[in-house]
Measured scan of single mutants.
Amino acid sequence: TTTLTYTDEEEARKAAEELKRRGITFTYTKRGGTWEIRIK
């Protein structure tokens, strides 16, 4: 499992869109002031 952490929502959203485009499965979690993208 790879976890990407972002403090900028815009960056996190761009990363999530890129992963979706590649067909990669991930979970997206907001934790306080950070956003976590966990790639399975």
Rank of each mutant, 00 (worst) to 15 (best):
Asp8Trp: 03
Thr34Arg: 11
Glu36Met: 07
Trp35Glu: 01
Thr5Glu: 06
Arg22Lys: 12
Ile24Ala: 04
Gly33Thr: 12
Leu19His: 01
Ala16Ile: 15
Ile39Tyr: 12
Lys14Ser: 10
Ala16Asp: 01
Leu4Trp: 14
Arg13Trp: 09
Thr3Ile: 15
Glu36Val: 14
Leu19Gly: 00
Tyr6Glu: 00
Thr1Trp: 15
Gly32Ser: 06
Arg38Cys: 04
Arg38Leu: 13
Ala12His: 01
Thr3Met: 10
Glu10Asn: 13
Lys20Phe: 10
Lys30Glu: 13
Arg21Asn: 10
Lys40Arg: 11
Thr5Asp: 02
Tyr28Val: 15
Ile24Asn: 02
Thr2His: 11
Lys14Asn: 10
Thr2Val: 15
Thr27Asn: 04
Arg21Gln: 10
Ala12Thr: 01
Asp8Met: 06
Ala12Tyr: 11
Thr29Asp: 06
Thr2Asp: 08
Glu36Trp: 05
Gly32Tyr: 05
Glu11Gly: 05
Leu19Ser: 00
Ala15Pro: 00
Thr3Asn: 04
Gly32Ala: 09
Arg31Tyr: 11
Ile37Cys: 00
Ala12Ser: 06
Thr29Phe: 10
Arg13Phe: 08
Thr25Gly: 09
Glu18Thr: 07
Ile39Lys: 01
Glu9Thr: 02
Leu19Pro: 00
Arg31Gly: 06
Arg31His: 12
Glu36Gly: 01
Thr27Gly: 03
Tyr28Pro: 01
Arg22Gly: 05
Glu10Ile: 11
Glu10Gln: 13
Glu11Gln: 11
Ile24Asp: 02
Thr3Tyr: 10
Glu10Trp: 12
Glu17Val: 08
Leu19Ile: 02
Glu17Gly: 07
Thr7Ile: 09
Thr25Cys: 06
Arg21Ile: 09
Arg21Cys: 02
Lys14Trp: 07
Arg13Gln: 12
Lys30Met: 08
Glu11Ile: 06
Thr29Asn: 08
Thr3Gln: 04
Lys14His: 09
Ala12Arg: 01
Lys40Tyr: 15
Thr2Cys: 05
Lys14Ile: 08
Gly23Asp: 04
Tyr28Trp: 12
Phe26Ile: 03
Arg38Ala: 12
Trp35Cys: 02
Thr1Arg: 05
Thr1His: 12
Ile24Phe: 10
Leu4Glu: 03
Ala15Arg: 04
Thr1Asn: 11
Ala15Lys: 13
Glu17Arg: 11
Trp35Ile: 14
Glu10Thr: 13
Ile37Phe: 03
